[in-house]
Design a binder for these strands. Structure first.
Length: 287
DNA sequence: GACCCGTGGCC
DNA sequence: TGGCCAAGGGT
């Protein structure tokens, strides 16, 4: 493969978005919070919640001192509210195991609740300048296209993908960090999943997928996310009602937000089981 | 590896 | 209009 580094780094220098969790002024905690919120959630929706979150809880200790229900409420409509629970649990673990400081070591990060391979690498690289391959959906798509000549990467990260991404890292730590975020930014802004803007791509002339004439994806079918009538929709609606309420919400009130009684009961039990709701004599509340 | 977990914008 | 998609992680 031809060398993507120079044109990509030059492009990033010119086109990078200014985001509150980027740059030398951002704390490691700010970076970590952003990474939790950005899991499957677009930047535009994360921005306002991230700002409120950091204002209220500027440190892991500040968050850990609050009930989990406060985190669920502040999470608002970002989706996947268990992430709020995991972020709270991670803050608690950071206080207990790391003296209240976000750990810089990827292995320590990986051990925190809600931190997988991607998030551990992202925090280590973006907050601490460590040298790791950062394999998110953007990076994987860019490399699949530029390098492999296919439209989309496999469903799950493969060993060859990880080895290649590691081999592409510049030797210098700081340059490797910039390279990783530049690759992500290109995927987010130019080499998008739908309607890629190849005319604006700094490495278009090096791209194997473009050279092959943009062949359509021909891998195994990708499962869509069912929504209407699912437990996820039911859970979301039930939790939204409690989240917006001041006090406990009676079961009879919740019954009006979802018709099917069996599904409603099952979902309420699941929400309690997950720690997203608590039930007392008055009804359902945030924990 | 399959499946589950929210929410909303886009074309 | 509705399927697709968004800086994944847990089980």
């Amino acid at each position: 493969m031809s060398d993507l580094h120079e044109p990509l780094l030059r492009w990033y220098d010119e086109h990078a978005r200014e985001l509150p969790w980027r740059g030398p002024q951002a704390s490691a905690w700010s970076v970590m919070v952003s990474e939790y919120m950005l899991q499957q959630t677009p930047v535009a929706r994360v921005l306002p919640v991230h700002e409120q979150w950091l204002e209220r809880w500027p440190t892991p200790a500040a968050l850990a001192a609050e009930p989990t229900g406060e985190a669920i409420r502040m999470w608002g409509r970002l989706g996947y509210p268990r992430r709020a629970l995991r972020l709270h649990a991670a803050a608690t673990a950071i206080v207990e195991r790391h003296g209240g400081e976000v750990p810089a070591d990827a292995e320590d990060l990986r051990a925190l609740p809600g931190v997988g391979d991607y998030t551990a690498a992202a925090v280590a690289v973006f907050a601490f300048g460590r040298r790791h391959a950062v394999l998110d959906t953007n990076v994987r798509r860019v490399l699949a296209r530029a390098d492999d000549g296919v439209e989309l990467p496999p469903a799950n990260v493969t060993k060859p993908e990880r080895e290649r991404a590691t081999a592409l890292l510049p030797e210098d730590d700081a340059e490797a960090a910039t390279w990783s975020i530049a690759l992500m930014e290109l995927g987010a802004l130019v080499c998008t999943a739908a309607r890629p803007r190849c005319g604006a791509c700094p490495v278009a002339d090096l791209c194997a997928w473009r050279a092959a004439g943009h062949p359509a994806y021909d891998g195994p079918p990708r499962r869509g996310q069912a929504w209407a009538g699912t437990d996820r929709q039911c859970r979301g609606r039930l939790l939204a009602v409690v989240r917006e309420a001041d006090g406990p919400v009676r079961a009879s009130t919740l019954a009006r937000t979802w018709d099917e009684a069996d599904q409603r009961t099952r979902c309420l039990a699941g929400l309690v089981e997950d720690g997203l709701l608590v039930r007392d004599g008055e009804g359902y509340s945030l924990p």
